[in-house]
């Protein structure tokens, strides 16, 4: 190998790690140069959604299942942290973990019976779960503040140093998002991740190769619920206010749209999907009033022309091209 080949091979071998590193540097420097609080508020939201979409993409894109109820786990995280820290005086940091474990336990209870279902039935069951949680949030107003929402969630703090500005929160949120991104990248490159991909491709074959498909589905469902809950807790502490409408079934559909637009089974696509669908409405005024129509349209168009999603679809095309090209050269 020549020097140039060695460098290229090194880049190829560590492509994921290096991309994470580059993205971290970019995210660390960018607010110092361009610290517009409005934009930072928006990118913080993107960071939070990225965490939800990463988990959901493992469940939908990798394991080939469907959930129209992930806004419910996002809600459990947000309301769990909000209520426990404000009303009961729990410490915020451990509460985030506690609530995440609680959401994981709920996911386990919901997942064990519902994950025996497939396709539309699973979609309906998870949708039903979302409606139940939403109704509880709206109706149980002594605890949740009802339709008008829950105010006064404290900021997270390290000692007396508060995460109270968009700039500080930027670092907190994106540190969490990048950690989750790295964990997801690790997972999909492991035997467990291949087991999930196998189960999405062909359940019978996956089982015959030794994948305990039932357990694997429940595990990844719980993992995705824990991530959604973490993002929810951070959401509550970031905005100081939570309202049930953030967590209705349309929010769940939006998360699924982010997964699909970004790319089924693409970790990087999750970031892209969350960013695109959070950002677009802010730049196109028309989007504001017709948001649901346009989201629906995007979903339909992507599914028709690139059923694997934008990023994954394009990568698949590139992979086939690259393989053909290498084959011709060899």
């Amino acid at each position: 190998m020549t020097g140039r080949d060695k460098i290229l091979y090194f880049l190829y071998l560590h492509r994921n790690g290096l991309t994470v590193l580059a993205l971290s540097c970019l995210l660390a420097i960018y607010p110092l140069i361009y610290g517009n609080p409005y934009i930072l508020g928006l990118t913080n939201l993107i960071g939070l959604y990225t965490i939800v979409v990463l988990g959901l993409n493992l469940f939908i894109g990798y394991a080939g299942q469907i959930s129209l109820g992930h806004a419910a786990f996002f809600a459990l995280g947000a309301y769990g942290s909000a209520i426990l820290t404000t009303e009961w005086g729990f410490w915020p940091w451990p509460t985030i973990l506690l609530v995440a474990l609680g959401s994981g336990a709920v996911a386990l209870l919901v997942g064990i019976p519902t994950l025996r279902l497939h396709g539309h039935y699973l979609a309906m069951a998870t949708l039903g779960f979302n409606i139940v949680i939403y109704t509880v949030l709206v109706q149980w107003d002594e605890l949740t503040g009802g339709p008008s929402g829950f105010y006064g969630v404290p900021s997270l703090a390290i000692g007396s140093w508060q995460f109270d500005s968009d700039l500080k929160l930027h670092y907190l949120v994106w540190a969490a998002a990048l950690v989750c991104l790295t964990l997801a990248l690790n997972l999909v490159r492991s035997g467990v991740g291949r087991g999930l991909a196998a189960l999405a491709g062909d359940e019978v074959a996956a089982r015959s190769l030794g994948v305990d498909t039932r357990t694997a589905k429940v595990k990844v469902f719980v993992l995705s619920a824990v991530l959604a809950s973490l993002a929810g807790s951070l959401y509550a502490h970031t905005f100081g206010f939570v309202s049930p409408d953030t967590f209705n079934i349309f929010a769940s559909v939006d998360f699924v749209t982010m997964v699909v637009v970004g790319g089924l089974g693409s970790v990087w696509g999750s970031l892209f999907g969350a960013a695109l669908l959070t950002w677009l409405p802010e730049f196109i005024d028309l989007f504001e009033s017709y948001k649901d129509i346009i989201h629906g349209l995007i979903l339909v168009v992507v599914l028709m022309f690139l059923p694997q999603g934008l990023v994954t679809g394009l990568i698949d095309l590139a992979r086939v091209r690259l393989a053909r090209w290498r084959h011709r050269r060899a």
Binding site: L183, A184, N186, L187, S190, G191, V192, G193, R194, G195, D212, K219, V220, L223
Partner: peptide
């Protein structure tokens, strides 16, 4: 392969 999801993460 390993079966631990935690290890994989």
């Amino acid at each position: 392969g390993g079966k631990s999801m935690f290890g994989a993460l």
